[in-house]
Computed example of a mutant assay.
Amino acid sequence: MNALQLKQAVNISVLDNVQNTIASQASIMLADFAKTQQNIQQAASAPHPTAGHHVDVRA
């Protein structure tokens, strides 16, 4: 293998590793985003903690 072929092989290997890293980071980011969306949905459907404690009956 000459120097050019070696350089190309190393570049391809590094590129492959970078692509794998980016794919795994994107997967983690999307999973975290989905968890956040679920938490927001649950918080939005929960009753307000102080709603109904004080009723203003003044006319």
Rank of each mutant, 00 (worst) to 15 (best):
A31C: 06
A3E: 14
H53C: 06
L15E: 15
L6A: 13
S24P: 05
Q8C: 06
L4P: 03
A51Q: 11
S24Q: 15
A23C: 06
S27I: 08
L6P: 08
I28S: 11
T21Q: 12
I12P: 06
Q38F: 00
N20P: 07
A59W: 04
Q5W: 01
Q19Y: 04
R58L: 09
N39V: 03
M29I: 15
D16S: 13
Q41G: 01
L15M: 12
A31Y: 05
L6R: 13
K35I: 10
A59K: 10
G52Y: 00
D16W: 01
F33C: 00
Q41Y: 02
K7Q: 14
T50Q: 10
A26C: 08
N39R: 09
A3M: 09
A51T: 06
S24H: 07
S27M: 09
V18S: 05
D56C: 02
T21C: 08
V18T: 12
H53D: 08
N39I: 03
P47E: 00
I28V: 15
V55R: 07
T21P: 05
Q25G: 01
L30Y: 08
N20E: 14
M29R: 12
V14M: 05
N2G: 15
S45D: 04
A31K: 14
M1L: 08
D32C: 02
A26F: 05
A51S: 09
Q19I: 13
T50M: 09
T36Y: 04
N39G: 10
H48F: 07
V55D: 05
D56Q: 04
R58G: 06
I12E: 13
S24T: 15
L6E: 14
Q37F: 01
A43L: 09
I22T: 08
S27W: 02
D56M: 02
D16I: 05
Q5Y: 02
Q25D: 07
S24C: 06
Q38Y: 00
V18E: 14
K35Q: 09
Q8F: 01
N20D: 15
L30Q: 14
V57G: 03
K7S: 13
L4N: 10
L15T: 15
A26K: 15
S45H: 03
S27L: 11
N17A: 14
Q25R: 12
A31W: 02
I12A: 14
V10E: 13
S24L: 11
F33A: 07
L4G: 05
A44W: 04
Q38W: 00
H48M: 04
N20G: 13
A26T: 15
K35M: 06
D32A: 10
A46V: 04
V55E: 07
V18R: 11
T50C: 05
I12W: 00
V55G: 00
Q19E: 13
A31R: 15
N39S: 05
H54C: 05
P47R: 04
A51G: 03
S24F: 04
A34E: 12
V55P: 02
R58D: 06
H53S: 09
A31P: 04
Q25F: 06
V10W: 00
V57L: 12
S45V: 09
L6T: 14
M29S: 10
G52H: 01
T21E: 12
D32E: 13
Q41A: 08
A3T: 13
I22M: 11
D56K: 02
D16Y: 03
